[in-house]
Amino acid sequence: MNEYGESVVWLAFNYLKDKNKAEDVAQDVFVTCYTKLDTYKGDASLKSWILRITANKCKDILKSWSYKNITFAQNILDTFKRKEPTPEMELMGSEENNELAKNLLALPVKYREVLFLHYFEELKIHEISVLLKVKENSVKTRLRRARMLLKEMYEGSEEDGRKA
C-alpha cells in the first residue's frame, strides 16, 4: 500500500475525476488485493496487477446506474473556477500544469488512461496492453490520438488567447 497507494489513487482519479471516490476505490483495491493475493499468478508485475484491479473497479463504477445518473461535469468546472487552490491543483503546480490537467481530464477515458499509464506510471506499451487487455497496436494508436487531441486543445487555447 505504501509503494503503490499514490499510483492507485491517481489512476482512480483519472477515471472518476473525484478525489474522494478515488480514495474510496484505492481502499477497496487494497482490500481486494489482500483477500485475493493467492490468485496472483505472477504473469505480470505486482504493480500491473494492482493497477488492473484499480482500472476494473473504476470501470465498474463508471458503468453503474448511480454514477451515470450523477453529473460531475459541473463539479469539475467548479473546481477549476475556484479562487483557492484544491489539493489536486496545488499538486499540479504552475498554470501550465493546471491547463495540462484540465485538458487531460477533458479527454475520453480510453485516451486518458493510456497517457496516465505511459507517462505518469512509466509503463511500457506491452504492460499497458496486458493491463487494459487490448492489443499493443491499439495502445500505440490511443497514445498517438491522445497526443493529437492534447495538441489541438493547446492550439485552440492559444488562438483563443490571441483573440482576447
Rank of each mutant, 00 (worst) to 15 (best):
Y111F: 13
L37P: 08
S7K: 09
L123S: 04
I70P: 00
Q27E: 13
V109E: 05
A22V: 05
K102Y: 08
W49G: 00
V31C: 06
V139I: 00
S64P: 07
K17Y: 11
E99P: 00
M89D: 11
D38T: 03
C58W: 06
H126Y: 08
A101G: 07
L91V: 12
S66C: 07
K57H: 10
K36T: 13
F80E: 05
K140I: 10
P85Y: 15
R162S: 00
Q74T: 13
F80L: 03
T39V: 09
E158L: 14
E152V: 07
N2M: 09
W10Q: 12
V9I: 10
L123A: 02
P87C: 13
S64Y: 02
A12E: 06
S157P: 08
T86H: 01
G161E: 08
E136H: 04
E23T: 13
T79W: 11
V29M: 00
T79Y: 14
K140C: 10
A22W: 01
D160G: 06
K151N: 11
S157M: 11
R144V: 03
K63V: 09
Y34S: 14
L11T: 11
S45L: 07
L149P: 04
G93F: 03
S94R: 02
E113I: 15
I125R: 09
L77F: 14
R147Q: 15
A101E: 13
D28S: 12
T79K: 15
N103G: 04
F116K: 04
I125N: 12
Y154P: 07
S129L: 00
Q74S: 14
S138T: 15
E3P: 04
M148I: 15
K41Y: 09
L150M: 08
D160N: 11
R147K: 14
Y15C: 07
Y111H: 12
V134A: 04
L115Y: 01
S7D: 12
G161H: 02
L100E: 08
N2S: 13
L131E: 01
S7C: 03
V25L: 01
E122F: 06
W10T: 01
D43H: 09
Y119D: 12
E90I: 12
T79N: 13
L115A: 05
L143G: 01
N137M: 02
A164K: 15
S129H: 02
L105I: 06
